[in-house]
């Protein structure tokens, strides 16, 4: 598995798209910090970019990559190698390549300009989101044979988690606004890794955004060590769930 992964990783690092992604992130991070004098504010703007761009790039790139390496996988499958090995080698090398791109694009300049607890969370959560959305891309890719359709599914995933889900949550909150919704929203947050990521970072970064009773409730929950562990665990579940479902399907699939 390590050997296969190494070859895929070599291939990935030389990929022009991954390089462009790195440079894009680097450019965004640097411009954020040179435009705004307040480092806290630029970290918030950067967070918005990370929460939108990282999932989008991860999911779309992985889907395209999966189909592009279809022939390579077929070739490997002709050898005495487990499907499981190929699958996890693919997954790990793609996520590691994208994480490295993210780390060198965002984490490095952040460490130079403004290193504190909140940026540490931003970095950690960027890596987590990369792993989650690569796993979701695998789920989208094994679902169908058609590349265009798979990209469509992948984009739908992104669209759902980035925008549609929030709309639904707003609708639910609006409908049940007469009831105490704190615990309900807490569980709703867990159902979307992007929301979870945003709230964890915001609580570290921008306390004044978390006002009122609900804010205090979140602060109590996520601000404590237990809350952090909880959100990290939920994120790991978000990695494992699509990954294992896709794995099952990949092993049974007629390639």
């Amino acid at each position: 598995m390590i050997k296969i992964g190494k070859y895929i990783l070599y291939d990935m690092v030389r990929n022009r798209f991954v390089m462009a992604y790195t440079f894009f992130l680097l450019l965004v991070t640097l411009s954020m910090f040179s435009l705004d004098s307040d480092p806290g504010k630029s970290t918030i703007s950067l967070m918005n970019i990370v929460l939108l761009v990282v999932p989008l790039v991860s999911i779309v790139f992985t889907t395209i990559h999966f189909y592009n390496s279809y022939e390579f996988m077929e070739m490997l499958l002709a050898q005495p190698v487990h499907r499981k090995t190929i699958y996890f080698a693919e997954y790990l090398s793609v996520s590691i390549a994208l994480s490295v791109a993210f780390l060198s694009g965002v984490a490095l300049p952040l460490c130079v300009f403004n290193f504190n607890e909140s940026t540490l969370y931003l970095i950690l959560i960027g890596v987590m989101l990369t792993f989650i959305f690569v796993a979701l891309a695998f789920a989208a890719s094994v679902a169908t044979r058609d590349k265009a359709r798979a990209i469509g599914i992948a984009l739908l995933f992104w669209f759902y988690f980035a925008i549609i889900y929030d709309g639904l949550v707003l609708y639910i909150i609006y409908t049940f606004s007469d009831y105490p919704m704190e615990k309900v929203t807490l569980s709703l947050v867990s159902l979307n890794p992007i929301d979870l990521a945003r709230i964890v970072i915001l609580l570290k970064l921008d306390v004044s955004a978390m006002m009122g009773y609900t804010g205090a409730f979140y602060q109590n929950f996520f601000g404590s060590g237990g809350g952090i562990i909880y959100s990290l665990l939920i994120m790991i579940v978000w990695i494992l769930l699509p990954l294992l479902i896709a794995h099952r399907k990949f092993c049974l699939k007629d390639i």
Partner: peptide, 9 residues
């Protein structure tokens, strides 16, 4: 409780 969506897209 809609504060949970603050700063979302």
């Amino acid at each position: 409780s809609s504060v949970m969506l603050w700063r979302s897209f």
